[in-house]
Design a protein around this nucleic acid. Structure first.
Length: 549
RNA sequence: GGCCUUGUGGUCAAGCGGUUAAGACGGCGCCCUCUCACGGCGCAAUCCCGGGUUCGAUUCCCGGCAAGGUCACCA
């Protein structure tokens, strides 16, 4: 068969010589050891924690090695396209400090572009034409129904499913049959004429998994779909070669198609990049664990973390602790070092999938936030509130001095022992809400109505907003004594049966009355911030409830 | 089902022939304490199972089992 003629018929016209591409996209001039990595999302705009996980691995690898990270958009599937998706991806990643050097909408060096696969159609076709001309690819006229029927038959016969070997019907079409089908205008795809044998196993070194065994590919996979757009596999080989990617870090769901990619690189005469297949983040679903999925886990979308107001650095730190097991120790030793100074290593990435642990993230988050100054915290909260907060919450920022006092109390003294009350912006905003107006009590009094009223009114009788903490607490103790409660905790603990309660119980009533919560930071300080007038009003209101009754 | 990958406490994990099997999160106690938080001190783990190899195996080999991934003109 005249393959050249067939290639001309299938992909007519002038295409550049393949050497043209080699020259146009020469190997990058980078220092030794520098890795070129990439992120290649499809433009659905949806990006979740698993993507971030891989993104950080790619970014760190590129930038700790003095290399380059670029963004390529895999838009070969028209169905997946969503408007504004690329910008959304870039924005989401920038929130976590992932910066690209080149790529779609990045504005860096564009000499290795275009970055949208749709715009690279000519390139793929040139290579496909070459393959056809060399007899390494051929047109396939099988319909979806026929392929489905084939699959069914293979399944019934317990054969491996797919288009391969004797099952690759169109592989054996005669020249006449091909041209007849073409003349009849039948739609077709271009398939690779695989030279592999699935019986053959070869050993392959994966940068993350180590030495693994892979089976040779024998599937005549589609390289050009009927619309002339390449499949992922074909585009991957060509793009990563021409963009001179040195290390492909991608999810382990790609491991199964690695044999295809290996064959493609060989057949195209490309030097293979290194590969690292990272395990995917998993989550508990019912009784079993599974990888995070775009469709099933919208709550794990990056957008979720922004909405909740997670501190971006906290999410990043958590990802890093999962990515490189020695990171956590490093971070404990050098908490003030920039994250970038940690020596990230691909080979240290875990081999098994980690379960996403919200508790751990929350702990890290609380730690991160506790290291902020009140001013920084205020700024973080303000930015979050502007985007996601309620109108009422936006008012918290009208009196900056007041807000700072509140945050100072809730965070503790800078440089000293600090509280870790705040986990996320939305949680923090809720946590400080009582400083900006008291609603219904969240916690209930644990003493009788009568005792409660007694405590509040006798406190009110001697409360003076100018008292310092010592005097203030002294008065609470006296009050406790008058009601028969233990004024000293030591005495109470020594003989709890002798008292109806202790100062702790007295303080609890006052605390609930003033804030609505049984647990808060120092009560005296809270009253100082609220001011005497507001404090009195709140306590008075608690008495009022009884009158109403 | 075929193929691939993985299997150390509830979770993330270090260790890779001899260890009291690190550490972190979570849990639970205790201490500190007007509550909470912080901090401090403790407690809880038959290294998936079964065979080998070895003086000795969590570590090596084989076989199970379990979990995950994948088998598209989706990426």
């Amino acid at each position: 068969m005249d393959y050249r003629k067939l290639a001309e018929r299938l992909l007519p016209g002038q295409y550049p010589e393949l050497s043209y591409f080699e020259e146009k996209y020469p190997p990058r001039e980078l220092p030794k050891g520098a890795e070129v990595t990439r992120l290649a999302p499809s433009p659905t705009g949806f990006i979740h924690l698993g993507n971030l996980f891989a993104a950080i691995a790619n970014e760190r690898t590129a930038h700790t090695s003095g290399g380059i990270l670029y963004l390529r958009i895999e838009d070969t599937d028209a169905k997946r396209k969503v408007d504004g998706a690329v910008e959304a991806v870039i924005r989401a990643l920038r929130y976590f400090d992932i910066a690209f050097d080149e790529g779609a909408e990045i504005g860096g060096d564009n000499s290795y572009g275009p970055w949208y696969q749709r715009e690279r159609a000519e390139i793929y076709r040139a290579y496909a034409k070459d393959l056809i001309g060399r007899g390494l690819a051929y047109p396939c006229f099988c319909t979806e129904e026929e392929l489905a029927a084939l699959r069914e038959r293979q399944t019934a016969e317990k054969k491996i499913t797919g288009y391969y070997g004797e099952y690759a019907r169109c592989r054996f079409l005669s020249e006449e049959e091909i041209y007849a089908a073409l003349d009849a205008g039948k739609p077709y795809v271009i398939r690779l004429r695989s030279g592999g044998n699935a019986e053959h196993k070869l050993s392959f070194h994966d940068e993350i998994k180590g030495d693994i065994t892979v089976t040779e590919n024998d599937q005549d996979i589609v390289i050009l779909k009927s619309d002339g757009i390449p499949t992922y596999h074909f585009a991957h080989a060509i793009d990563d070669h021409l963009m001179r990617t040195t290390l492909v870090i991608r999810g382990e769901e790609w491991l199964a198609s690695l044999p295809i990619h290996l064959e493609l690189f060989d057949v195209l005469g490309f030097r293979r990049p290194k590969y690292g297949h990272n395990c995917s983040l998993q989550k508990m679903d019912g009784g079993t664990r599974r990888k995070l999925s775009k469709r099933k886990d919208p709550e794990l979308s990056l957008e979720f973390y922004r909405k909740e107001g997670y501190f971006p650095r906290a999410v990043k730190v958590y990802m890093l602790t999962l990515l490189n097991s020695d990171f956590e120790e490093w971070y404990q030793r050098f908490p003030d070092q920039p994250l970038e100074t940690f020596r990230f290593q691909v080979r240290k990435m875990g081999k098994s999938g980690a379960l996403f642990d919200l508790d751990k993230l929350n702990d890290i988050s609380a730690n991160e936030l506790s290291r902020l100054s009140a001013e920084e915290m205020a700024e973080f909260l303000r930015a979050w509130t502007e985007e996601y907060g309620t109108e009422a919450q936006k008012k918290y920022f009208s009196d900056r001095e007041y807000l700072l006092k509140v945050l100072g109390l809730c965070m503790g003294v800078a440089g000293k022992k600090r509280r870790k009350d705040f986990i996320t912006a939305s949680q923090a905003m809720d946590k400080i809400a009582y400083f900006f107006g008291k609603g219904k009590n969240t916690d209930a009094y644990r003493v009788s109505e009568q005792t409660k009223n007694q405590i509040i009114s006798s406190f009110l009788a001697r409360y003076d907003g100018t008292d310092d903490a010592q005097i203030w607490f002294g008065k609470v103790k006296v009050l406790a004594g008058e009601l028969g409660f233990a004024a000293e905790m030591k005495e109470y603990k020594a003989a709890p049966e002798k008292y109806p309660g202790s100062v702790a119980d007295i303080a609890e009533v006052l605390r609930i009355a003033a804030t609505g919560y049984a647990n808060t930071p120092d009560l005296w300080s809270i009253m100082q911030i609220l001011g005497e007038e507001e404090t009195r009003q709140r306590l008075q209101a608690e008495l009022g409830e009884e009158d109403a009754k």
